[in-house]
Structures are given as structure tokens and as C-alpha cells.
Design a protein around this nucleic acid. Structure first.
Lengths: 344, 344
DNA sequence: TTGAAAGCGCTACCAA
DNA sequence: TTGGTAGCGCTTTCAA
């Protein structure tokens, strides 16, 4: 077999190779160390102004960009905060929270990376995340268990924060219990004299983590009373809503708590088309307090949900990173307030 | 000054250090090479079954997770496809596209990473992205210019794809010209006999990239006719909409194309509250064909926007990565179709 | 003020 | 079938 020799070093400046700090050093006529000092503005070392200029000039000329992986490999740590990319389209509430969080972490000099984990679930996904050696991991929803947290911690994550219904051993927790949202709605409907309460549960997959607790909250609100609670699975299509509305009178329900304002609008429209009056025949309560609800007629009664502030979470992350030995913090952060309007 | 000596190697198995492949090798009593072979299922080398078992067992026991940065540093390339994380909350259309793209790229064994670039703009941001040495970069919107593309290419990105109104030198382009959306609406309104057309332009920052072309499209649709086009800046609040509606009759407008269905709903509601009849007094056309529009009364006429398929984009990326020398591909991918309903 | 060199964790080449 | 080892790009200590 014929051996093809490697290209001898410094023979031809290889066609399209990516410039390294060594290339910059060569062009500037200095050592790699000096390049590093100059480009990182190292204060511990004094480099003459002419040298600095030469180095910078060479870097610019070559279009040099440092290699983040090499840098963090050498440093032994990174400033990467990793979050799984949402698998289901995120609503405006969560989007806003995310944007706020990103900019708050950015100000603290962290870089937020959303990692698209395709098929992997919970603790398996944690392994994939751990390969990136993030300094912190933020995980919305349930799904990450103690094993996943352990993998992440073992691989150097100095903070693991879950944002979900319950805390996970070893991780910080921002408890966002959507049960309170349902409870808020249920209590309101019951106080308004409603006794046969339907709860719209999205038929779409991926929303169970929110819909189940919201349903449970309604149940808890009327526990021990004579009121009944009925789950109403509903796909987000006009046809499905029309079908549900068509059999409405047969159900005898006098109130409905929809999963959120969008499902509420969908159902309310179908009910009105069917001749069912809102709120006379049936009270309708939505959730999430979207602009949408204010524009409906009757105006939609809703549960306003208060997500944690992105800034607070950013500070929690920063604290945890600086003080990795500390006790896991647990905060209850989901506020639920009823916003009474006209629909119930 | 007292020198604190480094911990001598292999003295104490350092408290909370992250296990490396060397640790696995030590525990299994083999070399690091063997560990690498086993854990990567290297087919070129035959390793005995007992050895394999020992290695795997050791890895499991230590909770070993490979270090992605070290791996890709060694390999000289990664499978990371980088996208900037949207700075403004993404709508359902884009979210769905993104989810589809992620899973399609995942099937091709790429990893999608959304990188939260906080304050940086366009070509500066490109530098930050380049530090991660992604194999491909997908950039929605305008903002990335030829210099940015050059930086990314120089730093090893084998594919740069822009998703925006116009192509950028050196990059592949998925041309999504929102001008066509406005044109579609404008032509429809003009054909329906409307002559004084208002166009709602969001007052919110960050939407100009879409709103400006949509407005321009309406202008083009009526160019050379006696119709007029008036831009109507509108913030996404009830108050702003009410103010606009209050001065509506004075404007003499007989049609309005809203930026999207949500702004259309906001304005339509305000107009109706003001006693302006839709579609008799004013035709209303939205955009994006959200579920929302079907539920309004009158049902909202809208422009259906067809985003490119995530699968097609994934294939384009894969082609470009495999054939990095190829000519940049340019595809016109944004379909705009009018969906006539009742509001105009 | 600058340079030489070690080494972060990993893979792949070559030798045994 | 397995081990030794070079080297990816970078920072940083130590020496000059």
C-alpha cells in the first residue's frame, strides 16, 4: 500500500484551513503566548504597544477567531448555560420569560444555548447535555429525575435548576405548580354558584405536564362539596370544538375551565354558534391572560399566570455557580390570580 | 511568597473531579485507546468481549460522559448546526418550522443549537458564532452581511444559509420575501374595489424586517392605479387600537391590511366597538392564517403564508456540508395565498 | 518583554 | 488484540 505522506508543515499555507493563533503568531513574528496575551488583554503581563499592534493587525488580516472548544478545554470550564429547546411551540408567556432570562444571563457574562434534543427523554437527554460540559443546566417541565441530575453534576455542571411541578433531589427548583392555576379557576367558579364544571384538556401531546395539574387543581378546589368535575379532551380544531358543543346540552355542565385562553376562545365560539349563552348558560374561564381574551365578547374571565422573573433566575444561577456547594434552593414562583371579566 | 505545589498526580482521586477516559482506562486496567475503541464501537479494531465488558462496566461505574469539546477539537469538526435564538417571541408558524427542522436535522445526525446572542448585531454576532466552529449556520432575517458570512466560512462553517428577503454573497439563501404577502393582500383588496387602503405596521421593535416588506408589497400591488396606501403604526394594546379606531372615520379608509391576524383582531374589535362595520365600511385582511381568524365574526380574510419545509432545509444543509465547494443555492420559498373569508 | 513548553480530553495511527 | 503516543488549539507557568 502506498503511503501518502502528510503535507510537510509550513509548506503551502493549506488552501482553506482555519487560521489558528499559531498562524497569527507567525505572521506577527511573535510567539503564540504573546498572541494570547494581547488578544485576551492580559493585565498580568506587559506587552509593548508596537507588538500589540502587530498582533492585532495580523489577527485582523487572517480573520482569526478563537476556538471556543479549545479554550474551554484548556480552562477546564465554560460559561455556557444550557437549556433544552422546547419540543412544542412555546407560547408568548414562556417566550417572553426566555428572552428576559437570556438577556439577564448575558449581562452576567453567561451564554445561553438551547440544545435541540430530538428523541431523547429526560435522563437520557441529560447525558447528551452533559457532553457539552455546561456550567449550568436549566430544565423546564418534569422528565429530569435524580439520575439525570446526578449525571449532570458529575460531569461538572455547577448548577442544575428544574422548572417544574416538584423538586428533584440534588437540583435547585423553581416550583411552578400549575395545580394552583386550576385551583384558582375552580374556586372562582364554585364561589359563583357553578356546580357542574367541565375542564378542557388539550388532546395534543406534550401538554400533559401542564394540563394534568390544572385539572387536578380544579378537582381540589371543589373537593368535599357537591360540585362535580368532568375532563373534556379537546383537539385544537374547529371540528373538534363543534362536536363538543353539539353534545353540550346533554352534559348538563354549567361551567368550563379551558386549558388556556386559546382553547377557551375555540370552545366559546363553538358554544355560541350552537346557541349556548355565555355566561348565562355556561361560565367560561380561560388561563394565561392573553390579549386575546380581552378582545372577545363577552370578555374572557381568565387566570393570570405569573412566571418567575428571568432576572431572578439568572441571579439564582449565578449564585449557584459561584457557590456550588450550597444547599439547593427551592422557590415557589408561579403566581395565579383570577382576572374576573364577563364570561364567568 | 509560599508556593503551593500542585497536587501530585494520582495521589488522592481528587474530590469532585469529572471522570475522564483515562480514569475509565485505569479502572478497567486497559489503555485509553482501548477505552475509546470500545465506547465508540470502533469497527476497524477487534476487541475481545471480556475487555469490552470491563470497559463498559468501568465507564458506568464512574458515570463517565465523553467530553464533546475535546472530541470535536481532536476530530477537527463537529456536527453542530447553529441558529441564533430568536430575540423576539416567535409565532406559531416559525415555532412549528423550527421544530420540524430540528427533528429533520436530528435524523441526519446533526445537533441543532440555538445560540442566545444578546446585544450583538449581525456581523458582530457572526464572530461569536464562529467561535463555536459550527459545521453549518442558519440565520433568519436580514442583518448578516457578506463580512459575517466570510467570517463564518473562514472559521470552518461548511454551510451558511440565510433565511431572509435577499441573498447574501457567499451564502445559500432561502428567499422569504414578505413583500409577496403584502402584494397578495393589496391585489385582493384592490380587486374588491377598495381604493383607500390602510396598512397596520406594528409599533413594536424587531418586527420591521417583516412589516416593511409587507407594506411595500401592498404599495406595489396598487402602483399605477388611483388607490392610495397609508401606513398605520399600531402598538399591540387595546388603548392604541381604540385611539386608531376613534379617528378612523376621519381617515376615509375603506380597507385595511393588518400586519398579521393578531393585529387584525385587535383593530377589528376596536373598529366594531366604534360602530364601524366590517366588511361594509371597511374590509379587513390579516396574515399568517392563524386559527384565531377562523373564530372571529366576521371570519377573517387572511393571507396564508407557506414557510419552507424543515425537511427540505435540512437536506439543503446536508448537501452543502457534504459538498462545501458547490455553488450557493438560492431558493424562493415563501408562498403567499389569499384565503378569502368574510371580513373583506 | 517575550518565548518554550506542558497539558486540558480525546481519537487514530502505528507498533507490538 | 492491545498499548504508546502524537497532536487538535488554546492558556499559563516558568525561564530567559
Amino acid at each position: 500500500m502506498v503511503q501518502i505522506p502528510n503535507t510537510p508543515p509550513s509548506a503551502v499555507p493549506a488552501q482553506h484551513s482555519v487560521p489558528t493563533s499559531a498562524d497569527v503568531a507567525r505572521l506577527a513574528g511573535v510567539s503564540r503566548a504573546t498572541v494570547s496575551y494581547v488578544l485576551n488583554n492580559a493585565t498580568a503581563v506587559r506587552i509593548s504597544e508596537p507588538t500589540r499592534r502587530r498582533v492585532r493587525e495580523a489577527a485582523r488580516e487572517l480573520g482569526y477567531v478563537p476556538h471556543a472548544a479549545a479554550r474551554s478545554l484548556r480552562a477546564g470550564h465554560s460559561r455556557m448555560v444550557l437549556m433544552p429547546a422546547p419540543a412544542i411551540p412555546a407560547g408568548p408567556l414562556y417566550s417572553r420569560f426566555l428572552a428576559e432570562l437570556q438577556s439577564a444571563l448575558g449581562r452576567l457574562d453567561y451564554t445561553v444555548v438551547q440544545y435541540g434534543t430530538v428523541g431523547l427523554q429526560g435522563d437520557e437527554a441529560a447525558r447528551a447535555w452533559a457532553e457539552l460540559r455546561p456550567v449550568a443546566v436549566l430544565v423546564p417541565g418534569a422528565g429530569l429525575g435524580p439520575p439525570g441530575v446526578a449525571v449532570l453534576r458529575r460531569s461538572g455542571a455547577r448548577a442544575v435548576v428544574t422548572l417544574g411541578p416538584e423538586r428533584v433531589e440534588g437540583a435547585h427548583a423553581l416550583l411552578m405548580d400549575h395545580e394552583a392555576v386550576g385551583h384558582c379557576a375552580g374556586a372562582h367558579l364554585h364561589a359563583g354558584g357553578r356546580r357542574r364544571i367541565g375542564v378542557v384538556v388539550p388532546a395534543e401531546a406534550g401538554l400533559e405536564a401542564f394540563s394534568r395539574p390544572r385539572l387536578a387543581g380544579v378537582r381540589r378546589a371543589v373537593r368535599g362539596t357537591d360540585a362535580t368535575v368532568t375532563a373534556l379532551p379537546l383537539a385544537y380544531t374547529e371540528q373538534a370544538a363543534a362536536r363538543l358543543a353539539a353534545r353540550w346540552r346533554g352534559t348538563g355542565l354549567d361551567a368550563v375551565f379551558a386549558y388556556n385562553d386559546e382553547y377557551a376562545m375555540l370552545l366559546m365560539r363553538a358554544l355560541q354558534d350552537e346557541g349556548v349563552r355565555v355566561p348565562e348558560d355556561v361560565a367560561v374561564v380561560g388561563a394565561d391572560d392573553l390579549m386575546l381574551g380581552r378582545l372577545l365578547r363577552p370578555r374572557l374571565t381568565t387566570v393570570h399566570v405569573e412566571l418567575p422573573s428571568g432576572r431572578d433566575l439568572a441571579e439564582l444561577v449565578d449564585r449557584a455557580v459561584r457557590e456550588p456547594g450550597g444547599e439547593p434552593e427551592v422557590h415557589r414562583v408561579l403566581g395565579a390570580t383570577l382576572v374576573p371579566r364577563e364570561s364567568g
